[in-house]
Amino acid sequence: MKFARDTWLIFQRQIQLLLRNPVWVFVGVFQPVMYLLLFAPLLKPALNAPTQAAAYKIFVPGLLVLLAIFGGLFQGFGLIAELRAGVIERSRVTPISRLALLLGRSLRDVVSLLVQAVIITLLALIFDLRVFIGDLLLAYLMLALIALMTSAVSYGVALKVKSEDALAPLMNTVAQPVLLLSGILLPLTFAPGWLQGIADWNPFSWAVDGTRALFAGDLGSDKVWQGLTITAVLAALGVFWAARQFARSVR
């Protein structure tokens, strides 16, 4: 009970600060819209899709997973600012749950990602994308788990390295191959065998496949439960590890 209350407390505070920042609202909402509008004309021929709607079924899930990964991975920067301001230290002398300090923040990241995801989905509807609501909700769950994991890991790493200068290259180094090898923007169907072999070891590749299956209305596909299981396990591990960093971080 205390844990839930503590988490809610931190979450509320973080959401309040988020809404107060007009830059976030701008970037967070307009950036994905740009992706959608500027990529739209290129999609059908590039993906060799029979219709515009078919192209969106492939592209939109990939875009959403991409946003979930990047939205999460770069949250650590905000935490370093808080670290520097002494806010984290101040929180750590109170009896508040350490897991709540992490989870309250990560849940804010999940919520802001889901808001983006809903906006993008709604826009894609205009371009004839059609998804069953149940499938869509499961896809959102997958996105939430991805964002939870990447933001938790980002916070944990931020607490360890404690400086933007170290965090930026680190996160970029992680993000690039993960992105390229997940088939996020284009499916890896046409990739040579060895590349697909590597991609099998990339958890995000499973997540993308699962999300695409859901958007395709293929709920029974093995890819769905596999993707969900892998992201859920990784999210749990990420949260567990990052919460430990909150418990023992030294300035």
Binding site: D6, R13, N21, E82, A85, G86, V87, R90, P95
Partner: peptide
């Protein structure tokens, strides 16, 4: 702490209420 503990974008009242609630 020696180096400060308030967040730029919050008000004193918000900080005080939050901190009390963390206890």
């Amino acid at each position: 702490p020696q180096g400060g503990s308030t967040w730029d974008e919050s008000t004193a009242r918000e900080e005080l209420v939050l901190h009390a609630r963390m206890y």
